[in-house]
């Protein structure tokens, strides 16, 4: 239930979590904001120093605990603030993507992209496209399966 005057929000949002690197993509999302590029509101952004900081298990954890979609965004390859963190991210996340079906998770619910601090427009189109994609998939079935599985929800990784 929403916190605002006790009513549900007017549009049914889905739960999308974004992990954004501080230097490029978080800045890109800021640039989109400064430019007033309107976007769907579903996404909640978690700031990380580098896409290389995103443990693939964060993504799995989120999707298995009921997130409808997870988006990871970092600096473009060869343009990482930490010189090669995003290259590690690319390798890890690509493997994760291929592994998701094994866990019974639709791989379309996860995406990783590259957005630089100046690419506000690219951020807007990426968020909009990903949100639309998740809405097309609908709410995650993981919730029904896992809702009462206290171990998965409360337990650590």
């Amino acid at each position: 239930m929403s916190v605002v005057d006790g009513k549900e929000p007017s549009v049914k949002e889905l739960r999308i979590i974004g992990f954004l690197c501080n230097w490029c993509s978080y800045g890109g999302a800021d640039t989109a904001g400064v430019s007033r590029f309107s976007q769907p509101t579903d996404l909640r952004i978690i700031r990380v120093p580098c896409s290389g900081r995103v443990t693939p298990l964060f993504v799995v954890k989120a999707l298995m605990s009921g997130a409808d979609g997870v988006l990871v965004s970092g600096c473009h390859p060869r343009d990482c603030h930490y010189s090669e963190g995003n290259l590690y991210a690319r390798r890890r996340l690509e493997v994760l993507k291929r592994f998701l079906p094994t866990l019974g998770i639709e791989p379309e619910r996860f995406e990783y992209i590259w957005v630089s601090a100046s690419e506000g427009e690219r951020w807007q189109t990426s968020v909009t496209a990903f949100t639309e994609r998740i809405h097309a998939l609908g709410p995650s079935p993981a919730v029904k399966v896992n809702r009462y599985d206290a171990r998965l929800v409360a337990g650590g990784l």
């Binding site: 929403s2 605002v4 929000p9 007017s10 999302a29 007033r36 309107s38 509101t41």
Partner: peptide, 18 residues
């Protein structure tokens, strides 16, 4: 940057900000 400037619906924005 991530809420008030990019979302149009005040209710949804408030929800997200919270």
């Amino acid at each position: 940057e991530h809420v008030s400037w990019v979302g149009r619906d005040k209710k949804l924005n408030t929800f997200k900000a919270t």
